[in-house]
Structures are given as structure tokens and as C-alpha cells.
Computed example of a mutant assay.
Amino acid sequence: MTITTDSFTVRPFTRNCHIIWDEADHVLIGVSPGNSYFSAARITELARWAAPRFTAVDFVYADLHVSAVFAALGHAPEQAARRATKELKAVRRRILGGVEAAGPPGRRIGVRALSEFSGDPVYALLHRRVQHFLVTDEEFRKSCDRMVQQFLAPKLSAGESITSEQRSACLDYIAAELPFFLDTPGILGVPSSVSCYHALMPLTELLYGKGGGLRAARNQGYAVVRPEAPERSVDDDHRARAA
């Protein structure tokens, strides 16, 4: 279920995600601060690629709990706050510059920070659901723990274990992002939406699979979007199963 375009290779996670992709109502491109993948040039490429294909495009960058993560990694509180502020200013500047360099798109391209949605009732409800399932659903909690491990492993010294403070700060950071993987249409008022990232999350299988528990809305899709064609694997058909 891989789609090859002129600039990026797209892999919708399920058949339903592919249908939502074809509807082309809205695409959400999540941007992580401090991630070298999201250079200004990459943002420009993504904007030029997405604008002609979707009715609306939004870049959303994570700006919540960033200083808490730095503090948990050993920075003094003031230093953690300064570093977070510096990184968030840099990522916003890169996104705005990249979108501007893409030229007039003929489509709406939004640039928003996660913190802008803190007062949104739909976002707040979804965030509370995430927090509830972290406490009550073992499968969901284990998947989040794998995301914590994936996020923190490159930042720790060899043999160093994750502390409870680091785990808590990282879970807060992840929980703040998850509403947009659950129901972007509900938050932004669009008919359907595809959340795009350049890699699969450990939570993707759970959120977009069948069954009970915390699951993405039916009109919420997920796709891995990369600038080069991914290698085929024996898991491709499994990942493209019907939702």
C-alpha cells in the first residue's frame, strides 16, 4: 500500500488510512523540536508536496513539557527553560521560513503550536482520555513506555537507566501530542485528516487497529511520509491490513 509521489514516498498504515488519504481533506504534519530531520529545506519540500494534494495543510509543533524533559535529563531548571525557549523559537522559525520559501500554495497552510490548543474543549477531552488510559489500560501504557524508551535512549549514556522523573516528563510530552493522532478532525473541524510523520510510532499499531480501548477516530488516518522509497519488508501487508 505504498504510494510514490514526485517528492515523497507515502505509506498509509491501514486500508482505511489509504481511503482518508485519497479523500485529501486535510493533512497534519507533526514537527518535533530538536529533530534534525525537520530542516527548513525539508519543511519547504513538505509544504510544496502537500499543498497541491490537500484542501488544507497544518504544521503543528510540540512545545509543551519541553523544558520539563530537559530538566529531567539533568539540566538546571533555568537552563532547561532557556534551552527549551531557544529550541522552540528555532523550530517555529524553520517552519515559517520553510513554508514561505515554498511560495504561494493556493491552499491554506497553518503553523500552530500544541500549546495553542490547550483551551480547546475537544483537545482537552482527548487529552483527558489519554491520561485515563495511561492509568487504566496496561496495553496502552506499555506502548507508551516503548515510545519513552525510543525517545530517551539516544539521550542517555550507555547502561544508564531511565529514571521515574524522566519517564514522567516524557509521558507528559507524548500525551500532549496524542490527541492529534486520535481525532484531528474533531479538533480542527475538518471532514477527515491524515497525520504524517517520517516513522512509525510504537503506538500506531494500537491506535489504528481493531478492538476496544483507545482508538483513533474513523476519519483519522496515519501515514509514514519519507523523502526516499522505503525498503519493502515482510510486514508491509500486515501494516496495510484493513482497519
Rank of each mutant, 00 (worst) to 15 (best):
L114H: 04
A113K: 08
V135C: 09
A113S: 09
R141T: 08
S115D: 00
R94H: 10
F117V: 05
S118R: 14
R92I: 00
L114V: 07
C144S: 08
E87F: 03
V111M: 06
A102H: 12
D137A: 06
P121R: 13
E139A: 15
I95F: 05
R141M: 02
V130I: 13
T85S: 15
A90W: 02
F133N: 11
F140S: 07
R83Y: 05
G103P: 03
Q131V: 15
R128D: 07
R94A: 09
P104H: 11
S115R: 05
L126G: 03
R94G: 04
V91M: 00
A90F: 04
A101C: 03
G103V: 10
P121G: 07
R129L: 13
R92N: 03
H127L: 14
R141C: 10
R92S: 02
S143P: 04
G106S: 10
P121M: 09
V111I: 14
E139H: 13
I109T: 03
G119T: 03
P105M: 01
E116P: 07
R129A: 12
Q131Y: 11
R112K: 09
R94M: 07
D145S: 02
K86W: 14
E116Y: 03
R94T: 05
A101Y: 03
L134G: 00
A81D: 04
R83K: 14
G97A: 10
G103E: 01
R128L: 09
G110S: 11
L96W: 03
R129Q: 14
A102D: 06
D137R: 05
R112L: 12
R92P: 01
G110V: 07
D145N: 14
E87C: 08
P105Y: 05
D145Y: 03
R128G: 04
T136M: 03
T85H: 13
E139M: 10
L96E: 15
T85M: 12
A102C: 11
A113N: 02
V91Y: 00
R128V: 07
E100S: 15
S118G: 13
G119D: 04
A102Y: 10
A90E: 15
E139T: 15
L125F: 13
C144H: 03
L88C: 05
D120W: 02
R141E: 07
S118Y: 08
D145R: 04
A124P: 02
E87W: 06
S143T: 12
T136A: 14
R129C: 09
R93P: 01
R146N: 05
P121Y: 09
F117I: 06
G98E: 04
T85Y: 06
K142I: 09
V91G: 00
V111R: 02
D145K: 02
R94E: 01
A101V: 01
T136H: 15
G97I: 12
